[in-house]
C-alpha cells in the first residue's frame, strides 16, 4: 500500500520497543519518508537481478540474505549492497541478532539509509512492521473523550462537557489505572479492525480539572499511571440522569457503538450525585474481561432463574 507523510523516524519511534530495533547506521536518513507500507526481503537482487525488484520498501534481512552476502567476495558484496540500496530502499532491518556486514553499514552511512538491528525473526518484523505502517496511515479521527486503561481494558469515556469525564479519569488514576488521554483522543483503525487511541503529543498526560487548573498526571502520580497508546476495547458514555429514560437493567443484550466502522461494546451510564463513577467503570471493565473469557454473568443468572422456574412448573415442561 502506498503511504504518505510517514518518516522512518516515526516508524523507529513507534516500533523500536516492540520490534527491538537498534539504529546502527545511516542516522541522517531517519527524516526520509517511507513510500510503501510493505516490508520485503531482498531476494534475487543480491544475485544481481534487479529487473522486477519492488522498490521503495523497507528491506528485512535475516540469516539467508546476510549468509549469502558473506559468501561473496568483498568487492562484489559491496556492489550488490549498493545495487539494493539504489532501489529507493527507505531503510533496512537486519534480524535475528545477526551482525550486519561492514559494507552494508558503510554504504548505508554514505547514502544515508538507516539500518536497524533486531533480535526478532524476519517474519515477525515483516508482519508487525507492515501492520504498524498500514495503521499509521489508516484514517484517523479526533474524538472528544478520555481514554483510560482499566485492569488492562482500554475504556473510552465519552460524555458532554462538564458531566465529569476528567474527574472520573482522575479517580481512576488515583486507584492505580492508567491515563492515555484526557479530553482529546486520536483514534486510528489498525489491520484486523482494532482501534487504537493516543493523546496528541502536545499536552500528553496533562489534564484540566475544574477548580484546579492544568495538572501533569505523570509528574503527580508517576510513570505507572500513564500510557502512551492503547487499544480501545469498549466505550462508556456518561450522561446526566434523566428520570424519564430507561437504562439498561439486565445486560443480556450487548449494545454497541461504531467508531471508524468498527463496532465495540458500549455502555450508557447515567450520572447522579452519589454514584461512584470510577467504581462503575472499573466494574464494567472487569465485566468486559470476564465476557472475553467466555462467561456472561447476565446470561448465566437468567439460566439459573429459568431452571428454577422449570423445576417449579413441572407440568408444562414434562
Amino acid at each position: 500500500m502506498k503511504i504518505k507523510g510517514l518518516t522512518i523516524n516515526d516508524f523507529y519511534e513507534g516500533m523500536k520497543e516492540k520490534l527491538r530495533l537498534r539504529l546502527v547506521a545511516g542516522a541522517p536518513g531517519l527524516r526520509n519518508r517511507i513510500p510503501f507500507s510493505e516490508l520485503a526481503q531482498p531476494g534475487l537482487i543480491f544475485c544481481g537481478y534487479s529487473r522486477h525488484f519492488a522498490s521503495g520498501r523497507g528491506q528485512v534481512m535475516g540469516k539467508n540474505a546476510i549468509g549469502y552476502l558473506r559468501g561473496l567476495d568483498p568487492k562484489l558484496r559491496r556492489e550488490r549492497i549498493r545495487l539494493l540500496l539504489e532501489q529507493k530502499v527507505p531503510f533496512c532491518v537486519v534480524t535475528g541478532n545477526i551482525l550486519p556486514p561492514p559494507e552494508l553499514l558503510e554504504e548505508a552511512d554514505r547514502i544515508e539509509i538507516p539500518v536497524f538491528r533486531s533480535s526478532l525473526a524476519s517474519g515477525q518484523i515483516i508482519d508487525l512492521g507492515a501492520a504498524f505502517l498500514e495503521g499509521m496511515c489508516s484514517p484517523q479521527v479526533t474524538y472528544n473523550a478520555n481514554l483510560m486503561e482499566v485492569f488492562g481494558v482500554g475504556v473510552l469515556i465519552q460524555g458532554k462537557s462538564g458531566v465529569g469525564k476528567s474527574e472520573c479519569a482522575l479517580n481512576l488514576v488515583a486507584r492505580g489505572h492508567r491515563l492515555v488521554s484526557d479530553d482529546i483522543v486520536y483514534i486510528r483503525k489498525f489491520r484486523g479492525g482494532y482501534l487504537q487511541g493516543e493523546a496528541p503529543e502536545l499536552g500528553r498526560f496533562h489534564m484540566e480539572i475544574r477548580g484546579l487548573g492544568i495538572i501533569n498526571v505523570q509528574n503527580l502520580f508517576g510513570a505507572g499511571c500513564v500510557r502512551q497508546r492503547k487499544r480501545i476495547d469498549m466505550a462508556v458514555t456518561l450522561e446526566a440522569w434523566a428520570s424519564d429514560k430507561e437504562y439498561e437493567r439486565l445486560g443480556l443484550d450487548e449494545s454497541r457503538t461504531e467508531l471508524l466502522k468498527v463496532k465495540i461494546p458500549h455502555l450508557l451510564i447515567p450520572v447522579r450525585p452519589g454514584r461512584n463513577l470510577d467504581l462503575l467503570i472499573e466494574t464494567a471493565a472487569l465485566n468486559y474481561r470476564i465476557k472475553m473469557m467466555g462467561l456472561n454473568p447476565a446470561q448465566e443468572f437468567d439460566r439459573i432463574v429459568r431452571e428454577k422456574i422449570q423445576s417449579k412448573s413441572g407440568s408444562s415442561f414434562r
Binding site: E246, R249, L250, L252, D302, V305, R306, I309, S313, S316
Partner: peptide, 18 residues
Amino acid sequence: NKLGLHARPAARLVQVAN
C-alpha cells in the same frame, strides 16, 4: 407466558413499574 418470569419479562415488569 410459557417460560415464566425469567430475565426479559422481569426487566419489562420493572420498567413499567418504574
